[in-house]
Amino acid sequence: MCGIFAYLNYNVNRERRYILQVLFNGLRRLEYRGYDSAGIAIDSDPKALPQRSSASDSDPPPIVFRQEGNIESLVKSVYQDVAKLELSMEASFSTHAGIAHTRWATHGEPAPRNSHPQSSGAGNEFLVVHNGVITNYEVLKETLIRHGYTFESETDTEVIPKLAKYVYDKANEAAGGQVVTFSQVVLEVMRHLEGAYALIFKSSHYPNELIACKRGSPLLLGVKVS
């Protein structure tokens, strides 16, 4: 059975090392559910972020790590990849939104491409971790393919971030310069989804924000005030 986990530190400095440890420990707490793969998504180094040309520019894409096997296999591969990417473990974020997932294969074999977070495509504009089943994913997938989207996994989950990007693009075209909120995008995506699910969305268009939603599946929110 899949498990989703997210951690958002708001207005309190946390180093990447700490953020990774929280995400990994969250996944370890979900080990009792059974899984065959796992993954996380985090942000780039703050010092590496390019200057924005306007306030509406999106942040650089989040970094996604996905691995078949147990959680410790993911932990090992993440630390190896972080070193290869020369990401600073001491990089400090005053606000950071990270997501994580353990997967029990229902659609597609256990493999990195079928692990979560699933992405909207190149650039990881929208990322989703998902527990549950989207019963109408085949219809949504066919529709998105007709609109030019390419799918890389066999999961039902991949339709969700791609649908989010489609909704976001269309909403911005129709908005005439008005701001389209993250909540508006997610609510419209949910309107098209059938089944039982719990989801967490992360997007470079809405930095330092997460949207969690559910229909049928359980979802728990915790707040720590320090």
Results as ranks from 00 to 15, higher is better:
residue 107 H to E: 02
residue 112 P to Y: 03
residue 99 I to D: 02
residue 185 V to F: 08
residue 30 L to K: 02
residue 181 T to R: 05
residue 197 Y to G: 04
residue 148 G to I: 08
residue 73 S to V: 08
residue 86 E to V: 01
residue 84 K to R: 15
residue 110 P to W: 02
residue 102 T to P: 07
residue 103 R to H: 03
residue 54 S to Y: 06
residue 21 Q to E: 15
residue 8 L to R: 13
residue 58 S to T: 11
residue 65 F to C: 08
residue 168 Y to I: 01
residue 92 S to R: 12
residue 74 L to F: 04
residue 75 V to E: 15
residue 151 F to H: 02
residue 168 Y to E: 04
residue 88 S to E: 07
residue 210 L to D: 06
residue 223 V to T: 13
residue 11 N to M: 08
residue 105 A to F: 05
residue 1 M to F: 10
residue 115 S to E: 01
residue 156 D to K: 03
residue 8 L to A: 10
residue 59 D to H: 07
residue 9 N to E: 12
residue 184 Q to N: 11
residue 181 T to S: 15
residue 208 N to W: 03
residue 28 R to G: 09
residue 69 G to Q: 01
residue 172 N to F: 08
residue 80 Q to D: 13
residue 189 V to F: 13
residue 85 L to V: 01
residue 12 V to H: 14
residue 58 S to K: 13
residue 195 G to R: 11
residue 165 K to L: 12
residue 159 V to C: 01
residue 192 H to P: 09
residue 83 A to F: 09
residue 119 S to N: 03
residue 109 E to C: 03
residue 12 V to W: 09
residue 108 G to P: 01
residue 73 S to H: 09
residue 211 I to R: 08
residue 100 A to P: 04
residue 34 G to M: 00
residue 58 S to Y: 08
residue 143 T to I: 07
residue 203 S to H: 04
residue 76 K to A: 12
residue 117 P to Q: 11
residue 167 V to I: 15
residue 161 P to R: 01
residue 52 R to F: 14
residue 72 E to G: 06
residue 76 K to L: 12
residue 51 Q to N: 12
residue 36 D to E: 05
residue 129 V to N: 03
residue 198 A to K: 05
residue 17 R to D: 14
residue 144 L to V: 03
residue 89 M to Q: 12
residue 194 E to N: 15
residue 133 V to P: 00
residue 176 G to D: 11
residue 106 T to R: 06
residue 197 Y to F: 15
residue 140 L to C: 01
residue 53 S to M: 14
residue 50 P to I: 06
residue 121 G to H: 06
residue 79 Y to T: 09
residue 163 L to W: 00
residue 142 E to D: 15
residue 48 A to M: 11
residue 129 V to K: 05
residue 197 Y to K: 07
residue 177 G to H: 08
residue 78 V to F: 07
residue 65 F to S: 08
residue 212 A to M: 10
residue 41 A to Q: 02
residue 192 H to N: 15
residue 62 P to Q: 12
residue 122 A to F: 12
